[in-house]
Write a protein that binds this DNA or RNA. Structure first.
Lengths: 199, 199
DNA sequence: ACCCATTGAATGAATAGCCATTCATTTTCA
DNA sequence: TGAAAATGAATGGCTATTCATTCAATGGGT
């Protein structure tokens, strides 16, 4: 039986997605058994295949499920008539916040974004680009308004900013005993980035 | 037969390590067969096991082999009586350079280590910390000399800097058609970081 | 110079275990 | 009561690892 679109959003579909997210984050995609996911979701092994084509599809679905949401959330919070500096601050804070409150998902995304088959990489790249472009938008806006230096190249710098923020977020999540708070991280990042960009 | 220490550095050992690096970068650790590595190294499957305990050991060895070298190289170039700003510039340039000229290794380190077992993650963390601390050293030195702001926390910012630089490097490597040169990347990064840190 | 015994390296076919996926059967529920 | 959903034991494919065998180099004896 094919996996029909109407199964998405089903209670069981969500339960499995969430279980898979936890399990993949915990053991890594390749070390996780489908049976592990089934057990975590309190479901029979075969049930997974009523909702997902195969193990890969499970990973792709996790990605799809969350990436759009994250992009939309960031989009929402930075849109409006705020000044670019404020937008950048909000972006940094929100990204950290999103990672913090979706730790397992964040770990899975990180992994999926970077490894996996060619198909997935290209597929993921598109969704990822949308997210990244939220940053370059801010940068361009800042340049137009004369608050950010003209010499910076938004296409390059968007990645640097993302890299810094995401590395911090993931590290903070993976850190056993928290040596500093997420607020400290946010303010340090904001300070450095803003000063690094301003005219 | 155990893998004796004296096999390390052997011509065949190196040949296998290099083949494995290429294959893992190409197909990903979990999708690569030991037989693939053997073929790439022009060696029989069984021969691999004369030099490495198992497939995991191959991955760990790649990591060990390169991480120390990289750390040493960076250490060398930033030591000496240069000012911290110059050191930071050198660090950024060298890291980019290292990734550029060791693309397969960089991919294996970045991508594969993130998704590997808990053991490897913790093992890798040590070597990685050594590398990161080269950055915080620079930052502290800069603060002592009064060129970098006191308000920055080296323990936090070292990771942000690494994140930005490494994300750029990896992205540049993975990018099919290069939209910009590595020199552009370096100068953009330097500009942003230095301005972001200066008093 | 030649022979051949010894040793360690290398080979690759065979093994064995793992685990994704299937599907005959059972359960649920409308 | 029958269709849909769920189950989980059985299957089959895949591949890491092993190991009996082959190969090559060395050197001691003639």
């Amino acid at each position: 039986m094919p996996v029909s679109i109407q199964k998405i959003g089903t209670e069981k579909y969500q339960k499995i997605i969430q279980a898979a997210t936890r399990v993949f984050a915990q053991k890594g995609f390749y070390n996780a058994k489908v049976a592990d996911v089934a057990k975590e979701a309190q479901v029979a092994d075969g049930t997974i295949y009523l909702y997902f084509k195969n193990k890969d599809d499970l990973l792709i679905s996790i990605f799809e499920n969350s990436m759009d949401t994250f992009t939309a959330e960031v989009q929402k919070i930075i849109s409006g008539a705020l000044d670019p500096v404020e937008k950048l601050k909000r972006f940094i804070n929100l990204h950290l916040e999103l990672v913090k409150s979706n730790q397992d998902t964040a770990q899975v995304l990180q992994i999926e974004l970077r490894q996996s088959s060619k198909f997935m990489k290209e597929y993921a790249a598109t969704k990822f680009r949308d997210y990244l472009n939220l940053v370059s938008q801010i940068l361009e806006e800042g340049q137009q308004q004369g608050v950010f230096r003209e010499s910076i190249d938004p296409m390059i710098v968007k990645r640097a900013i993302f890299g810094a923020v995401d590395e911090m977020a993931l590290d903070w999540v993976l850190m056993k005993k928290k040596k500093y708070s997420m607020e400290d991280v946010a303010s340090q990042l904001c300070e450095m980035m803003i000063n690094g960009l301003k005219v």
